[in-house]
């Protein structure tokens, strides 16, 4: 038995954040998987990192600016070909408001 417990409320919340719809069986499995993974990740707590700054990228980077110029031409048709549902050159989605 690990020490992390993911309750129903948390897994429900994670499902909302992840935009996934899980049935009850999948929820139980996800809870178990996540608990195991967190127990494993908790190993990091053995390290003293109080005086350590978090490091996201290794190389310093600055904002990279460039002129916003169209260079790739009109790809409207190819792009719309990838859309699951199209009507008169527009992508169809369910009613949003």
């Amino acid at each position: 038995m690990g020490k992390n417990t993911i309750d129903d409320e948390t897994i429900e919340y994670v499902g909302i954040l992840a935009k996934l719809e899980l049935n009850d069986e999948e929820k139980e499995k996800a809870k178990k998987d996540m608990e195991e993974m967190l127990d494993y990740v908790d190993k990091l707590n053995e390290l003293d990192t109080d005086d350590v700054l978090p490091m996201s990228h290794i190389f310093d980077s600055e904002n990279a600016f460039r002129e916003d110029v169209v260079t790739n031409g009109d790809g409207c048709e190819e792009l719309l070909n990838n859309a699951p549902k199209v009507k008169e050159n527009m992508i169809v989605v369910p009613k949003t408001i």
Partner: peptide, 29 residues
């Protein structure tokens, strides 16, 4: 899906410092 859920969890408020930030500090070490 399993990785997306773990990722969403470690970035969620309340767990961000304990997991995501801790991992970034470990990365620095």
């Amino acid at each position: 899906k399993s990785r997306i859920m773990l990722g969403s969890f470690v970035l969620s408020s309340g767990y961000y410092d304990a997991y995501y930030l801790k991992a970034l500090k470990t990365k620095a070490l």
